[in-house]
Design a protein around this nucleic acid. Structure first.
Lengths: 250, 250
DNA sequence: GCTAGTGCACTGGTCGGACCAGTAGGCTAC
DNA sequence: GTAGCCTACTGGTCCGACCAGTGCACTAGC
C-alpha cells in the first residue's frame, strides 16, 4: 500500500462546464434578471468552444428556466427572473411518470394550504386581508357567470393566503400542485351536477376560513381550509384513497 | 366582425417538437425506463433534422432527467426511471436565487414531515415499523462515531416514515428539501457544541415519535415530529423567523 | 476445444463553416 | 421631419468532419 491516493475522475463535457459557470453567475447574483448574455458567437470565443457546444449549454440553461433566447435579438440571451416553471415541469413529469394519484396531490395541497392558513392567521397584514376579501367578492360575482372566472377567483384567494404566510416555498409548491390538480380534473368539474350549489358552498367555506384568518385563529383557519378542500375534491377522489384524506382532517 | 377567428401562432423550434414527442412517449409509457433511444444519427433520419437539432433536443431531455447518453454506447440514449433530480435542481436554484431562508425551508419540512407522520400512524405496516426501529437503532449506534453516520440514520428514519405515509409527493418533497437544508447547515451542525447531547436528545424524540406512530396516534406523532424538528434546527434559524416556526407547533 | 487479445464498426462529443429568417437601428429619400 | 429601406447583426438549422470511447465479432494462441 502507500503511494498517492488517486481519485476517480469524472469526464466533464464542455457544455456542462459552460452551464456551471453561467449558472454560478446567476445564482450568486453576478448576473441578475434582465442582464443579457453575450451573443453565441461571442460566447464561443470566450469559452474557446464551438457554437454547437455553446448552444447545447444554452439549451440546458433554457430548460432550467434561467435564460431565454429569441431569434434576431441583437442582444444575446436574456437572464430571466426565477419562475417556478422548471419546478412545475418536473413536478408535472413526476405526476405523469410516477402516476401520482389525485388523492396524493389533494392530500399534499390540503397539508400545505392548511399550513399557509395557519401562518397567515398570524402574519397577515390588512392589505392582504383586503386581497382575500376581494377574491371572495370575485368568487361571488363569478358564481353565476361560469366556472372559469370562479376558479380564477378561487385561485386568487388561495394565492393571497399563501403569500400572507410569508413562506415562498409553500406559496410556490401550492401553486404548482394546484395547477396540476386543476388540469387533471377540469373537465370533471365542468361536468359536475349542481355547479351553482357547489360554488355557493365553496364561497361560504372560504368566508369562514377568512374569518378565522382575520381573527388570528390559525388552528381554526387550518382546520377549516383542510375541510373546505376535502369537501370540494373528495367526490373526484377514488374511494380507497379517501381514508388518507380524512386522516388529514382532524 | 365575422370571418374566421384566427389564433395567434407560436413559432416552435424544431428541437422542441422532438422534445415534445419523446417526452410524450415517456410520460405515456410508450418508452419505459431501460429502453434505448435510437442513435443520434438514426434520430436525425426519423425526425428529418440535422444532428445538431437532435442533440439540442437530447440535451433538454437530459436536463429534465428523462434520458442519459453515454459516449461510445452502441445503443442510443437510455430512458431513465424518474428521479427527483430535476425537481431537486430547480428547487435548489429556487433556494439560491430566490433567497429562500432557512426558516422557510425548515417550516416547509416541519409541515410535510408532520403530515407524513400523521398518515403513517394510520397506514404503516409492521415491516415499515421495523424499518423505523432499525433506523433509530442505527442512530443510537452512530451517536458515538460521528455526525455523518448519525445523520444518515436520521434520514433513513424520516424516509421510512415518508414512505409509510403512502404519499409519494410528500416523500419526494421532504427528501429534496431535507438535502437542501442539510447542505445549508452541515458545517454549522458539525461545529455545534455538545453534539453528543444533541444526538441523545434527538434519539429520545425520535423514539417518542415512533411510539406514537406505532400506537396509531397520528395527531400526537405529527405534533411530536414538528417539535422534534423545531428543537433540532431552531438554533440555526435567525431569531426573527422563529415566530413563524413556533406558529406551526400547536 | 476454449480463452485472451485485437480490430472494426459504431457511438456520442466537438469542431468549423454555411445558410436562412428575423430583428433593431441607422441611413436615405421623400 | 418622417416614412421607409438597408445593413449588420442575431439565433435556428443544416452539413460534413474528426476524435475518443465502447461493445462485439473475429482471430490467434493456449
Amino acid at each position: 500500500m502507500g503511494g498517492p491516493r488517486f481519485e476517480p475522475v469524472r469526464t466533464v463535457r464542455a457544455y456542462e462546464r459552460i452551464v456551471e459557470q453561467i449558472e454560478e453567475a446567476v445564482e450568486t447574483g453576478t448576473l441578475t434578471p434582465g442582464h443579457r448574455l453575450p451573443s453565441e458567437r461571442d460566447l464561443m470565443a470566450q469559452f474557446s468552444v464551438s457554437r454547437s457546444t455553446v448552444r447545447e449549454a444554452l439549451r440546458v440553461l433554457q430548460a432550467r428556466g434561467l435564460v431565454r433566447s429569441r431569434p434576431g435579438d441583437p442582444n444575446g440571451a436574456e437572464v430571466l427572473p426565477f419562475t417556478p416553471a422548471a419546478l412545475h415541469k418536473s413536478m408535472t413529469t413526476l405526476a405523469r411518470v410516477d402516476q401520482l394519484s389525485l388523492g396524493e396531490l389533494v392530500g399534499f395541497r390540503m397539508t400545505l394550504d392548511a399550513a399557509a392558513n395557519l401562518l397567515a392567521a398570524r402574519l397577515r397584514t390588512e392589505a392582504q386581508l383586503a386581497e382575500m376579501d376581494a377574491a371572495i367578492s370575485a368568487m361571488r360575482a363569478a358564481a353565476g357567470t361560469g366556472y372559469d372566472a370562479f376558479s380564477a377567483a378561487d385561485v386568487a384567494f388561495h394565492d393571497a393566503v399563501a403569500r400572507a404566510s410569508g413562506n415562498k416555498l409553500i406559496q410556490i409548491c401550492t401553486d404548482v400542485v394546484r395547477s396540476i390538480v386543476l388540469n387533471l380534473i377540469a373537465e370533471k368539474i365542468a361536468a359536475a351536477p349542481d355547479q351553482d350549489g357547489l360554488m355557493r358552498q365553496s364561497i361560504r367555506h372560504h368566508e369562514e376560513v377568512l374569518a378565522a384568518v382575520r381573527a388570528g385563529d390559525g388552528p381554526l383557519a387550518a382546520r377549516l381550509s383542510r375541510q373546505t378542500m376535502y369537501d370540494y375534491y373528495v367526490t373526484y377522489v377514488p374511494a380507497p384513497e379517501r381514508a388518507a384524506l380524512r386522516a388529514l382532517l382532524d
